[in-house]
């Protein structure tokens, strides 16, 4: 499992490089930096999709989209729905570069601030903003395409 591999790699790096932690920043920040770089390196090897179409989605994912766009989406999320939504998120994120995925997941998903992302990744704050903006736009456009393929059944 890729997540476990990444976690193991992070633990090993953190343990072996513990001597390089100078205590200038927080330990959490130092560990987050190691985790971010490790994960980015691992994700860089993954294949990117240039475009996402409805035929790439499973029946559950298509159903989820249809249901959500037809209703108001305000119903409580079941575990099953969450799994489908998570899979759909992975598909949408696959159109992005690993760096853009990272920025979007941290800011929109984990509600991290621009500064927190900049600290964790080593990018400048303006670079983080640009990446997040671009990622959000690409994901929204990919989602728009999926919705229009479904016949444009969008709630008003």
């Amino acid at each position: 499992m890729l997540v476990e591999e990444a976690a193991q790699e992070v633990f090993l790096k953190a343990y072996t490089q513990l001597g390089s932690f100078e205590g200038r920043g927080s330990f959490e920040g130092w560990l987050t930096r190691i985790a971010t770089n490790t994960c980015l390196n691992m994700v860089r090897g993954a294949k990117r999709r240039p475009e996402l179409t409805v035929s790439d989605l499973t029946e559950d994912e298509q159903g989820w989209l249809e249901h959500q766009s037809a209703g108001d989406g305000g119903e409580p999320a079941s575990v099953e729905n969450s799994v489908v939504a998570t899979d759909l998120a992975d598909r949408l994120l696959s159109v992005l570069s690993p760096e853009d995925q990272q920025a979007l997941l941290m800011i929109d998903g984990e509600q991290a601030s621009i500064k927190e992302v900049a600290d964790a990744t080593g990018w400048s704050e303006s670079k983080v903003k640009v990446r997040a903006f671009r990622a959000r736009k690409k994901v929204r456009e990919a989602m728009e395409k999926l919705l229009s393929y479904k016949g444009g059944r969008v709630s008003g």
Binding site: L65, Q68, S69, G73, A77, S82, A85, T86, L88, A89, D90, L92, L93, L104, L105, D108, G109, E110, R136, V139, R140, E141, M143, E144, L147, V154, S155
Partner: peptide, 16 residues
């Protein structure tokens, strides 16, 4: 609508 649904799935992904 696309932005709203994207936000929902991204949030689900982060909370998984």
């Amino acid at each position: 609508e696309a932005a709203r649904l994207s936000a929902v799935v991204i949030k689900s992904r982060a909370e998984a």
